[in-house]
């Protein structure tokens, strides 16, 4: 009874919190609420017997995504104090920006569609909500039970944990493409040539010895947790994504605290690290074609070993990619040092 009440409150809280995220005037507060939203989603997944994704949501969905948002909001608000592109931009633009940033604590917002648009929108959106609500309440008993099929084939999958079996064997093609998405995102972000994260990073690295100590303490713990998650994934909740997320978060912390310099701007080492997970996955997936005749069809004798190798490299690439998405280093050295002269020192 109590747990039913808890579920009801949690389920009710989520849409309300989403509403608050979108209506809170202050953008910083909105992002904090967004992180809370992510954690509540993770909690509801834990309630729904889905520890794997609850873990991933807490680390990636709430943690890293929240950090990305905070960073960007900081970038938009804090730029007044650390202008970097002032030289190559017209005065007009600078003035406009000045006007927009008149109240740094409260980033510009409140640009909304006119009231009649909002009113007219409520009708179709309410209708959609009712239709979807009716649809989910009236879900029939499905004719196909994939859960049963997955559990029947678990033995042949090479691992003992259902989600890992789906991710790296039954439906590994999705996972392969998904790692491709991560790589693609890094390339797409780099192609925008944003320069390196400033502002927040500098502020945190100066005069916060407590943070340094904390990060130093956390580093070995997070590495151990990451390694454990990777190892445990074959039998119980965990795996490459959760391990990669924890290590990626560690990377972000290390960069934020200034203990580690952001990755080299044009380091081929970094590029190899980012690509190695995808390359190994694709390479093994293609190579097994020679033995079994199908893409990603592992030979039964070596399934477990191949999955572990793939997961190991995936963990490295996922961690590096998540950290790299946060740091947004420029793709070329000359470019970076030319446009962001204040970073010249760091670069060399």
């Amino acid at each position: 009874m109590l747990s039913l009440f808890f579920d009801a409150v949690l389920a009710l809280a989520l849409p309300l919190l989403a509403w608050r995220v979108l209506t809170t005037r202050d953008l910083y507060r909105a992002v904090i609420l967004f992180i809370a939203f992510g954690l509540l989603v993770a909690l509801s997944w834990a309630r729904l017997d889905a520890p794997d994704i609850a873990l991933a949501e807490a680390a990636i969905g709430a943690g890293l995504t929240g950090a990305l948002f905070l960073n960007t909001v900081g970038g938009l608000v804090g730029r007044k104090r650390s202008p970097s592109r002032e030289s190559d931009e017209s005065r007009e633009v600078a003035e406009r920006r000045e006007a927009i940033q008149s109240s740094p604590g409260e980033p510009v917002d409140e640009v909304m569609r006119p009231w009649w648009v909002r009113l007219a929108l409520t009708v179709p959106i309410l209708a959609l909500g009712l239709a979807l609500g009716w649809a989910v309440v009236s879900f029939p008993e499905p004719a196909i039970d994939l859960a049963q099929q997955a559990s029947d084939n678990l033995e042949a999958s090479g691992v003992d944990h259902g989600v890992t079996a789906v991710l790296l064997n039954f439906r590994s093609y999705d996972t392969l493409l998904e790692i491709g998405v991560l790589l693609l995102a890094v390339v797409a972000v780099w192609s925008l040539d944003l320069g390196r994260v400033r502002g927040g990073q500098a502020a945190l690295s100066k005069g916060l010895p407590v943070l340094h100590g904390l990060v130093r303490l956390l580093t070995p713990i997070m590495i151990i947790v990451g390694g454990y998650l990777l190892w445990a994934g074959a039998k119980q909740p965990g795996g490459a994504f959760q391990a990669g997320a924890v290590l990626g978060a560690l990377g972000v912390l290390l960069v934020l605290s200034g203990l580690v310099r952001p990755p080299l701007s044009d380091g081929s080492g970094l590029r190899i690290g980012l690509a190695v997970g995808f390359a190994v996955f694709l390479g093994i997936g293609t190579a097994v074609m020679l033995a079994t005749g199908e893409l990603l069809n592992y030979p039964p004798a070596s399934t477990y070993g191949l999955i572990i190798i793939i997961e190991l490299f995936l963990t490295v690439s996922i961690a590096l990619t998540l950290a790299a998405l946060f740091v947004t280093a420029p793709p070329r050295k000359e470019q970076g040092s030319k446009e962001h002269s204040e970073e010249k020192g760091e670069e060399s």
């Binding site: 994704i53 994939l146 989600v163 039954f170 995102a185």
Partner: peptide, 24 residues
Amino acid sequence: DPVPHAMVLTGIVVAVSATAFALA
């Protein structure tokens, strides 16, 4: 059912990629 869990895990990774690019 582990299949939707795997889909969600894939979806989370796609979502963080898309969000990072959109923010950039």
